[in-house]
Structures are given as C-alpha cells and as structure tokens.
Design a protein around this nucleic acid. Structure first.
Length: 700
DNA sequence: GTTAGGG
DNA sequence: CCCTAAC
C-alpha cells in the first residue's frame, strides 16, 4: 500500500539571496555568488525535508522490508535520486518537466542579479497571507516615526505554529502520479500542521511547487531516493542509498509561476537562458542532511561544487510535479553508495547511472536517453528489483508558513533597502537550514530510526495527524536577539542593507515569515519622481505593490520566542555586515536641471564644487559629484535622440544649452581657467534664470 | 576635499 | 548613483 500525502508548499518565496556589497567592479561577479550562497531555496527546504525523511528511513534499515516486499511498485521501486551533476550542463533533459522550469530560473536570476533593488523581494510567498487565516497582514504600524511593518501576523515562532497542510493520503499501491490538486479535494482535507513555515503559493490555485516525498512505509534495506526534477537529466552523481524511496517532486505550475514572476525588464535581461538554467538541477538535498547520511559521505558532489553553492545555483530549476511523472518517467538517477559524484561533464559514472526497469513502462526511451550513455549498471537493475516491492508513503507539502516577521525601518529608508532587509531577515532565518520534525498524533517523533510503518505513519488513517515542523536551525549561538551574534554567513552576505542613513536599520532578528509576495518590484524602477518627497513615492511603491506601508529601512523586530530561530542581527558591530545603503534616487527635476545648466554655463565644467555652491547650496542631497554626474548624463541625453531618452523629459531648450555649454567648455578647457563667469563669452544661452527657485524646491 | 571617469 | 584613482 502506498500512502500518499500531499503537502503543497509554496516555497517560491524562500529564495533568499543576500548580496553583499562589493566594489562595483567586482560586484557584479561576486554578488551573484554570494547571493547564491545565501539563498535559500525552496529546494533546499524540500531537500531538508527529504533528507530528513531519508535519514529516518535510512536509519531504520534494519527493519526489514517485509511489508512492502509483497507489493509491487514498479514506479517507485526504481526511484532513484536524480541529481544533476555539478557541472550541470550535460544533464539530460527531462521531457516531463519541460514547461515548468524556466520560470523558476528566472526567478533565481533575479535574486542573484546585481541589481539588488529589483530583485530582492521575495516574490514568491504568495499565499502566505492569503491562504491562512492566521496570517494577517498588518502592515503598518508606525512607531516613533519609524515604520514598522509586520509582514505577516503570525506567531513568531516556528515551533508550534500550525500551518495547514493539505494532503490526502490515498492508499495506493500503484505508482500513480501524485497530483496534488486531485488529491486534495478528495481527502477530507487533512491538515497537517507544520509549525514554522507555511508558505503558500500565491501563484495560483495549483501549487506551483509541490513537494512530494515518497518513501516506503517500511524502511528497509532498499531505499531509493527519487528526485525527479524537471528536466534534470540524470547526472553523474550518485547517492547511494538504501533502498528507501524518496521521491521529491517539485511541482511547478509553469503558468502560475510565470504569472507570479514578473520580473522587471532588467531582470529578464539578466536571466540566463531558461533552458539551460532549467536543466541544471543540482543538489536538491540539503547538504546537511545528506551529509549526515552515511553513505552519502562519499559523494563528492557537494563538495565539488562548492557545496551549498551548487544548490543555490541550481535551484533555479523548478521542480515540477508533473503528471508526466508517471508518463514520462523520470529519469531517475540512481546513486550508489560511495559513488562519487561525477563531476565530469557528460560522463556518468557507470555505476551511478541507472535506468530503472520501470522506465520501460513509461518512456523508457527517455530513461535511456537520460542515462546519457544509456548505460545501466547492473547494480541498478538489481536495486530496482528490490524497490519494486516497496510500499511507499507519499507526502506532499502544500505550503509552508513562515513565522511572523517584523520589520521596522525609518521612513527614509529606501524601498530597495526594505527589500534587502526583508531578504536578510528571511535569509537569516532560513540560512541556517531547517530542522525537520515529524509530528504524529500530536507528538514529536524523535526516533529517527523507527520506520514509518512502525510509527503508524504508513496507515492512511493515521496520516491525518501527521505534521511536519520546520524549524530554523539555529546553529548560531545565541538566538537571542543579541544583535551581536550574527549568523556568519548571513552577516556577510547581507545585501546592502541598511543605510547610511541615520537610523541604521538593523535586523535584529527575525523570524522570517512568509513573505508576502512582493510583486515584481516595480518599485525600483523608480522613476517615480521622488523629486519632491522621496518618502512618499517610495513608500507608495512598496505599499502598493507589497501592501506594505512605508518602510524604508527595516528593522526586524525580534519576536518573542525565537529560540529556535536564528537571529540575525545586524549590529553595527559588523562592519562588513554593515550595510550601506544606496542613496535614494532623486531624479533631477527640470528646474534643477535648469539651475545646473545655468551654473555650468557660467562656471564651466570642472568646477563642480563651485557649481554646487552656486546653484545647489541648499540642496543637501545634491553633492557636487551628483551635479557632475548629472551633467554627464545631460550631455549624453542631449546627444541621443529624443526617443531614446527616458525619465522626465528635459526641455529641448535646456538640452541645447547643455550641448552648447559642453562644447564651449570643452574647447576652452576652461576648467581651470579662471572663471569665465556669467559675463563671460558664453553666449550660449543667457536665459536669466533664477536659481533660487530651483533651490527652494530641491532643498526639500 | 575635489575632479574625472568608469561602472 | 557609486567607487576610485588621481590630484
């Protein structure tokens, strides 16, 4: 018998990236990397879960497989863990998953891309709010002038936070595809409680990402882990496992997904070719758990790629749960014990690759192909045989809820900083990994070695009371709010967080919570005219999109009981972590441009300090460097065709003057010369303009 | 601290 | 806007 439990999860939002600030030049390259490191992907979570399950099952290897033996599960029996090889490029593509993956990759790219502003918002935490009654969105709380946002009103703790899990547990012997939606309805609506994360998919009714975990009720000698990743060809890597079958299927609704992600143009630009990205799915499993697994040790895979990084990188891929699974077959990759991960590019280690016998049933062809070499190792076949008999319990995590997150930022904080702050908070929480706990009938099952069968989890009837707890791993020292203790990784990775602005925003701790999905950051684009009131505009954006009130700098307020949670405080202490925020963008208004032009006409280029003093003395936010830069852009703007210009249009008249002045001063190289002042030969344009007007405006 | 330029 | 090298 096979029990299926479907938990849908909407992890999308979990991708978290933090981008540390680096020198510009280096930034681009490095950011991505770091971001990757820090990111936490849904996959990881899933991986954690899977790993946990695996472990559990693994441990109980002694228990024998009798129960399942009798049953034939062709589909499951052969499950293998598919893993993408580190290199990734050579993976075979899975037919089944084709559709879904690309989107995800896109998402990732957003996160990683250098332009933090646009990308940090977790867009994917969809339903966290919507779906759960428990979550309220209290966004605005103003406290002392600071805006405190509560992203989700939920209990701060991961523990005990009940989240609902939808699932059905059909007992089935067959390998039928797990279709989350289908199952849901049928079952009485069991709810599993997952404390901790509840992340729902906001994207669509269908669960974009669903995690299915399937493993044999009995944990025995043979366990296979099957991770069908969409499009993941079977890589070289091999994990050897006992023959427990664990199937992790991430289901992704492509459409939904895409809908959800509306990356800004910029983002898109950054995104790597979807196809390619998709294919690479790398380690799905959390390193932690896998590492723990005895046999896994040998796998080099993790190391080779730089370990976690790989995961992050690859997480781009969406896992898609496909009906295809059955049909198409997964290309499963089997990993054997000790098999080292194959790093080599297309090479497979013969041992590692296997085609399950089953594939014949589905699309063997695919399977074969995937085998890259089409080599099936004897071993595999053997295993397969074993597997076939196993019974499986399928789990699907429908959604995870993230605890409440408090964010407090100065009104002057930028939207970008807010985003980063949120990311940091989430990252901090999740960065340490998640601890998966199993709750059964209200009790936590601590014995990892016990089999599901023994536990009673294999019985459909019992599944109702099954719950998972996902708790942040607090590896860190003091969870305490102490800002001082930081998560190492996090702290470094933290994006450019807080600002230079006076109120240094600090993320004290946070429990991250499901982030509401932040709509594609339209915000940044920010062309808004912030000219006058920066605050408003920026806030507006956020609010509008995110429903979050103004928040400019974030401070995550530590929830009360966060023991479990890792606290990520950004204490001023860390210089590194100290995050410097980019100044808020303040587009020059026409009047400012006019004043600038006027001043330059009089003073020439090369005397920016004087220009500043003359025309922008009262505009504290305009530095001479800004003026210089603006002039630079004005010259450029004046040079290009009107169609190519963006932003608030600058009167052609001013642009003409810009060009004239630019030409004039270029020739005169008067930079140093004395100052040909107003009276000077500049005939260029003598519009007598009053700077004062400008100044007044700007000074705001 | 300013300038000039590249990013 | 940011960052830096070069004054």
């Amino acid at each position: 018998m096979v029990l299926k439990k479907t938990l849908e999860n909407g992890f999308n939002g979990l991708h978290v990236a933090t981008i540390p600030r680096a020198p510009r030049s280096a930034r681009r390259s490095s950011n991505k990397k770091k971001a990757e490191e820090s990111q936490i992907s849904a996959f990881e979570l899933l991986a954690s879960l899977a790993g946990k399950l695996l472990q559990e099952s693994e441990s109980s290897s002694s228990a024998s497989s009798n129960a399942s033996e009798g049953i034939n599960h062709p589909a499951f029996g052969k499950d293998v863990i598919k893993q993408e090889r580190p290199d990734g490029d050579k993976l075979l593509k899975e037919e089944c998953f084709e559709q879904g993956s690309s989107e995800e990759s896109a998402f990732v790219s957003e996160i990683t891309s250098p332009d933090i502003d646009h990308k940090f918002i977790p867009k994917e935490f969809p339903n966290a709010f919507l779906g759960h009654a428990s979550n309220k969105c209290d966004f605005l709380d103003k406290v002392d002038g600071d805006v405190k946002s509560t992203i989700a009103n939920t209990k701060p703790t991961f523990h005990n936070y009940p989240s609902k899990v939808e699932g059905s547990f059909p007992l089935e012997e067959s390998c039928d595809v797990n279709v989350g939606s289908g199952i849901k309805g049928q079952q009485k609506g069991e709810r599993l409680e997952t404390s901790g994360f509840t992340m729902a998919n906001k994207c669509g009714s269908d669960d974009p990402m669903a995690l299915q975990v399937e493993f044999p009720a009995r944990i025995n000698s043979d366990n296979d882990t099957k991770l069908p990743l969409h499009r993941e060809p079977v890589p070289n890597a091999s994990f050897s496992r006992h023959r427990n079958n664990i199937k992790l299927v991430g289901r992704d609704d492509d459409e939904n997904f895409s809908r959800c992600n509306k990356p800004s143009t910029k983002v898109k630009a950054n995104r790597p070719p979807a196809r390619i990205g998709d294919r690479r799915i790398r380690k799905l499993l959390t390193s932690k758990y896998w590492k723990a697994a005895p046999k896994l040790k040998d796998c080099e895979v993790f190391k080779s790629d730089g370990g976690m990084k790989t995961l992050y990188n690859k997480r781009k891929n969406c896992y898609k749960r496909d009906r295809c699974q059955h049909d198409t077959l997964f290309k499963r990759r089997k990993l054997f014990d000790r098999s080292s991960v194959v790093l080599s590019d297309g090479g497979f280690s013969s041992e590692s690759v296997s085609n399950s016998p089953e594939k014949s049933r589905n699309g063997d062809a695919n399977g074969m192909s995937r085998g890259a070499n089409g080599v099936s190792s004897p071993v595999l076949s053997r295993q397969a045989s074993f597997h076939s008999k196993d019974s499986h319990v399928k789990f699907s995590i429908k959604s995870f809820k993230v605890p409440e997150l408090y964010i407090e930022v100065p009104e002057t904080a930028t939207v970008g900083s807010l985003k980063r702050t949120v990311m940091e908070a989430v990252t901090a929480i999740l960065g340490g990994g998640l601890h998966v706990g199993i709750l059964f009938e209200g009790e936590k099952i601590r014995d990892d070695n016990i089999t599901l069968l023994q536990t009673g989890l294999s019985c459909k009837d019992n599944l109702d009371t099954l719950g998972f707890t996902l708790e942040p791993n607090t590896m860190q020292v003091s969870p305490a709010i102490c800002s001082n203790d930081q998560l190492p990784s996090l702290s470094y990775d933290t994006p450019e967080p807080l600002t230079r602005s006076p109120g240094t925003p600090v993320v004290d701790s946070g429990i991250s919570d499901a982030l509401p999905e932040l709509p594609p950051p339209v915000t940044n684009s920010g062309a808004h005219a912030e000219s006058n009131h920066e605050t408003d505009s920026s806030q507006t954006d956020l609010l509008t999109d995110n429903k979050m009130p103004d928040s400019r700098a974030l401070v995550v307020v530590p929830p009360v009981s966060l023991e479990a949670l890792a606290v990520v405080p950004l204490t001023p202490k860390n210089k590194k972590s100290e995050i410097v925020q980019r100044r808020t963008r303040r587009p020059f208004s026409v009047s400012e441009v006019e004043a600038l032009v006027q001043a330059v006409e009089e003073l020439g280029t090369g005397r920016w300090r004087d220009v500043k003093l003359r025309a922008f003395e009262d505009a504290d936010h305009r530095t001479y460097v800004d003026l210089k830069d603006k002039w630079k852009t004005l010259v450029h703007t004046a040079t290009i065709s009107p169609q190519q210009r963006r932003g608030e249009p600058v009167p052609q008249e001013l642009l003409d003057r810009v060009l004239a002045a630019h030409g004039y001063w270029s020739q005169h190289q008067a930079k140093q010369h004395g100052k040909p002042q107003a009276g000077t030969p500049l005939k260029i344009a003598e519009a007598p303009m009053e700077k004062h007007g400008v100044v007044g405006i700007c000074s705001s």
